[in-house]
Design a binder for these strands. Sequence first.
RNA 1: GUGAUCGUAGCUCAGUUUGGUUAGAGCGCCUGGUUGUGGUCCAGGAGGUCGCGGGUUCGAAUCCCGUCGGUCACCCCA
Length: 390
Amino acid sequence: MIEQVKGTRNLFGAESEKYIHIFNTFCDAFVDYGYELVELPILEHKELFIKSIGENSEIVTKQMYEFKDKGDRSLVLRPEATASVVRFHNEFFKNESKKYAYFGKMYRYESPQKNRYREFIQAGAELIGTIDDYSELQLLKSSINFLEKLNIKAKLNINTIGSIEERKLYIKELESYFKKNKNNLSKESNEKIGKNTLRILDSNDPFDSEIIDLAPVIYQYLEEDTLDRYENLKHNLNNENIDFVENSKLVRGLDYYNDLTFEFSYKATVLGGGGRYDKLAESLNLGNSTGVGVAFGVDRLINCINYVPSTKKIMLIGQNIDDIKSVSKKLDKSGVKYFLPIRKSKENTQYKEAIKNNVDYVINCTEMTIKNPKNRESFEFNMRNLKKLI
RNA sequence: GUGAUCGUAGCUCAGUUUGGUUAGAGCGCCUGGUUGUGGUCCAGGAGGUCGCGGGUUCGAAUCCCGUCGGUCACCCCA
């Protein structure tokens, strides 16, 4: 038997219903509020991610699906979309400021487990061009609105990681601190010293916790301007009554962020995150647009929400096509949607099919009756009776 | 990349310890009948390369090796 590719997912039944609901909710929260939906290619040049995410990042060194096409181009399946959106923006709207929304598949070659797939879906939003603190605020507000519409009470964690220069300084200090204490750090963390020093802060090995707790905090290495901007954001959030937790150890996996970084988590799961990326366009040689963005893991949202569709399901049954046709014509005219039996099987079989599909009303097109299979109520079929029920 | 665990019918699983006719069950599916305040009941039927490949053996679902896939954890992340 041909098995499915490792780390891919088939969304079906209740899961695909959730998928539709999440997409619709995403459009309600972002697209309907002026974020323009952009459907970008899954294939991109490898270079785009090396120059944006960072040469030494885990994603670039280990996790990209890459190959040469027949024209000898080095292509990859996109591991994330922010760099693509920045590429798109600067290709077509270089001197403008715009808001974007995207919803699509991403690919990372990792070992799959709960809430982590090799082919996964991200829903994200980006504000690109000349942006400011108000841009950050509204992105966070839209994100919270999105999660609330999905009935998720997520926790917002925020942090500032300063400019790239400030961060360099901090990393240097952190590196020498960790080197001094390397005997009290786990093997994994030791391997990261010098290569991925910041990421050590993220370690959840209890052995590391003491050293990490006593590590120098980034805020000591930031310029007054940077801290002012951060204070300003916190002020704005408070002003909007948005709950957040400040976490000086919040370090995100992509190199291009500066100043603001944030994450939305629910229980132990990170549902989404993002931040500011003012130098991303520059590092791609695409100009000097600034930006801020968020991305949500749609698979994680699917795994986390409870959702029962609220529209009533109706199914028509009957063995005579003409009978069904006359009823369906009336429903079509009123814009009422319905299921049809998969074939002209016997009535009892069709009735069972309706029950299996969990429909709310069955219309028997031969008897011209409406039946509720849950409580066995029966009504004469006409549009007035039906409208009363749905 | 590392580790644990699983893989037999569409689904849930028994059978693997101790190798032995033609590999089973329940549910589901199909056909016919029954019921018609319709989900019941009866009869019949379809459906399996026992994940895949190799090895040991007279003989492998069963033992050994490899591999692919699922689940989970580490790592990392959304």
